[in-house]
């Protein structure tokens, strides 16, 4: 029992890494890594995902805390949006004289 616990304890959890490469941009998913805790995850993320100064900000989230939509449900999940084309600017016809719109 104790042996199992030790084995389980030495497997570092998996973390997803998000990096903001420049002030003003969004955080982008960069990949994943294993680390013992959040602080280690951030330090490791700096080491492996920003060797070329690609980051001003790092987010790490344990992979188990990421919730994702089901791609096979995509059709029914997104269907209502498909026929609401009035959300697009091209749906509206304006006279040529109108400027800045």
């Amino acid at each position: 029992m104790a042996q199992q616990e030790i084995t389980k304890k030495s497997e570092w959890p998996l973390w997803e890494v998000f990096i903001r490469s420049k002030a003003g941009l969004d955080h982008k998913h960069a990949g994943s890594l294993h680390a013992a805790d959040a602080q280690m995850a951030i330090e490791n993320a700096r080491d492996v995902y920003t060797r070329r100064m690609e980051g001003v900000s790092i987010w790490v989230v344990e992979s188990k805390n990421i919730h994702a939509s089901d791609p096979s449900e995509a059709n029914s999940l997104y269907d209502p949006a498909n026929d609401k084309i009035y959300r697009h600017p091209t749906f509206y016809n304006l006279p040529d004289e109108v400027k800045y719109m």
Partner: peptide
């Protein structure tokens, strides 16, 4: 390297 992996987990638990 096993001791490093184990130590990191133990350290993380202590920190927590």
């Amino acid at each position: 390297g096993k001791w490093v992996r184990d130590a990191a987990m133990a350290h993380a638990e202590k920190r927590n």
